[in-house]
Design a protein around this nucleic acid. Structure first.
Lengths: 231, 231
DNA sequence: GCTTATTAGTGGTCGAACCAGTCAACCATT
DNA sequence: AATGGTTGACTGGTTCGACCACTAATAAGC
């Protein structure tokens, strides 16, 4: 199984370094960063590349630019955006246990809510797609990667059927991260079986329009799965 | 009450325009945008400024850059990030009714979940802060802006007490948007009274550690408030 | 002492050049 | 005809150097 070669952009490297410097405490909240010219020199890159990095960091609310004054560090705990977590994950090629736990918790919360919404809002066509996807899962025959992909597809579909674009975007971001860890969840056949059974129950709840049951089943399903990951 | 003059950066204007062109259907998902040089010329801006805009749009997953190929539009419904909604709001100085409804729904979902988590996890010190904040609200005396600020502070504090940084960042982004509309929620004294009462009940539930009650109270409180907004 | 210029530093913008990856057209070999 | 290599014209990526606009601290003038 070959993976696409990933090429790190310069701006990504820069943003990642600055972010890391902040989380290491080298730059503290409220503190001013060196000027763009000097910072670029320190990093050995051009100012334009640095500016792209700072622009994205500003967008993540990790940093605040004040024209005529400088660039200042914001409080990461209170201000930084959801995408900052995703970025940190993608840049550092993984997350620490604590952050991962936070992501899992978020998924449980959002995905369960989406299952409930899906039970309320999914139409006939939606339900047909859901059923088809559930039937497609073959816990005994599928290899791990195929199974993992179908698993993720299922959850994204449920999130989609909730028909709440804002919450869907949150779920979507979270699954981007989980993709990395999902493989480990399905190593053993009995886990795959359990997973497929869970999907079955969730799909049934959604199809029957039982909102609270859909919520509970999804919550149980995900908590069970993530327990494996967080030990 | 004076508001800060906001100066739009060039990159913001560019990103906003491109985003709008996409949502208007001028550029469709999968389609390739003009090259950076030409696009910059069309917009009458420097390539560097355009690149900052494109970088942020890429980060929002609104657009995909493929080196050596070009810039391509992604499917906004399926891919764009939560921050894209926030950006659209900030750039266009408001949201359409449908998007606003989505934001309200997301807040109800996340904030209710956070209230439940807060009931589970808040410590003594946290509860003291919560109580103090509730006591500070004077629905009869406060002017609208003061009351609105305290309202927002209360909800952000609840979100914080849930002690889930990932979900907090979501709530935080949503409240950035709601700040614009919150004023309208508190125009009438009876609404302010009702709002303050709601906070009282929520705080009590959290303090007593009653998770489900905290969830339900928060849900009821927010749904009631947003109903006013969505008619 | 207060106000007003000055000034140095900041981010914001610009323009031009070159590097590096991609693709399509073409050509030579097989 | 099919393959594989070469070329050239695109694409985004990066660099350099200059100037503008804004801000805050300082010096000059009253």
């Amino acid at each position: 199984m070959l993976h696409k070669v990933k090429k790190r952009n310069l701006y990504e490297e820069i943003a990642s370094q600055i972010m890391q410097s902040i989380s290491e405490g080298y730059y503290k909240p409220g503190q001013q960063l060196p000027g763009e010219r000097e910072l670029a020199a320190q990093l050995g890159v051009n100012r334009g590349s640095l500016r792209e990095a700072l622009r994205v960091l500003e967008f993540m609310r990790v940093v605040e630019k004040r024209i005529g004054e400088g660039v200042f560090v914001r409080d990461p705990a209170r201000e930084s955006s959801l995408e900052a977590v995703v970025f940190r994950f993608l840049a550092e090629d993984g997350l620490d246990q604590e952050s991962l736990q936070g992501v899992c918790e978020a998924i449980v919360t959002v995905e369960s809510s989406m299952a409930r919404l899906a039970a309320r809002r999914a139409g006939e066509e939606d339900l047909a797609r859901l059923k088809a996807l559930v039937r497609q899962m073959k816990p005994d025959n599928d290899d791990i990667d195929t199974f993992t992909n179908l698993d993720q597809e299922f959850h994204l579909l449920v999130a989609q059927l909730g028909k709440s674009p804002v919450l869907f975007s949150v779920a979507s971001s979270m699954w981007i991260i989980m993709k990395k860890y999902a493989h480990a969840l399905h190593l053993y056949p009995e886990r795959r079986k359990k997973c497929a059974d869970g999907h079955q129950l969730i799909a049934q709840s959604i199809c029957s329009g039982n909102e609270e049951q859909a919520y509970k089943e999804m919550e149980r399903h995900l908590k069970g799965a993530f327990n494996v990951l967080l030990t």
